[in-house]
Design a protein around this nucleic acid. Sequence first.
DNA 1: AACAACTATTGACGTCAACAATTATTGCTC
DNA 2: GAGCAATAATTGTTGACGTCAATAGTTGTT
Lengths: 173, 173
Amino acid sequence: MLESTARSTEHREPAITRRHVTAKPIDAHEPWMRGLHADTGYLLYRLGLRSGQLFNACLQESGLRLRHYAVLRYLATTDGALQRELSTRLGYDPSAIVGLVDDLEKLGFAERRPSPDDRRSRIVVLTESGSDFLRDTDEAGLRVTGELLGPLDPAEREALHALLLRIAEDGLN
Amino acid sequence: MLESTARSTEHREPAITRRHVTAKPIDAHEPWMRGLHADTGYLLYRLGLRSGQLFNACLQESGLRLRHYAVLRYLATTDGALQRELSTRLGYDPSAIVGLVDDLEKLGFAERRPSPDDRRSRIVVLTESGSDFLRDTDEAGLRVTGELLGPLDPAEREALHALLLRIAEDGLN
DNA sequence: AACAACTATTGACGTCAACAATTATTGCTC
DNA sequence: GAGCAATAATTGTTGACGTCAATAGTTGTT
């Protein structure tokens, strides 16, 4: 149990009991929301789920899912990547990459090419139609994001994006 | 994700022989990262996954997961809720609520009580030990959030939280 | 030549979320 | 007041997903 709450001394915070989160200038309009979404981490989790669902729903008509889209976008940035690279960079298991690239190849969006210097590796490249698809769905992606970030004005969206990017810099990937 | 540092079996010796692997620290300002995380929705998705994993890892020792924690926190705010209410408010399927409340009941953190006015409904209430557990894990949750939001200073965290809350208000939930 | 490490791949196992179907109960309606 | 749609909780199923183990082919080392 957590009774021994891992009292590991964190390098920050002078360990004064300020657990009951001090003044919250956040105006949660509904009472239950204050309690539920008081924690930013949990908020991120919930919003991430919702965002993923929206994206998946948007990609559904094309037969792909968010993970395929991630692979495509990565390929678009590097123009040729080893599967191992996709695995480490995107955070998916190598076995997952196999299926994803299979699907993309089946749709003609990507190709596996033999590596000239190492016959173990396969270089995955984005095809023309894959690039077209990416361009087409980019608009849909923006639409989804717009829907998600509905109540925010452009400046706020920019600020949010910057903040999230700062976090992503740190630990993600 | 993130290779997960195979902590299960010891026979996986960490070989440090790097070949042409680009194992340098990832910087969000690299072009591929810009391409990948250019979309706020996708960024939210990735960060949400990471946040959920951190929370789950933190709760793991207590046998609970993030969803259980969400139920507990909601119960703490309303002091008695129908399962249907938990479903709609937390966004989980009614069938999921069943298992979650089962687990919480098994641990003594919550109780199902018959509703006096509607024999179909069950009122789920937080028990004393459930309340204690919440108080104990609150600190751990803040620690996780702190870790997640590492590169942000307090003002920025506050701003991020406010922005996310605005989004959460809007959509489902 | 023998051996360790690496890449891609397959398969097994457990988890989790979304959907359909079932049971018990309620409220409406004719 | 008997039938009937709607609702609350539950069960079962299916598909996606992550993790791990194992294998075949390949590379570099000694």
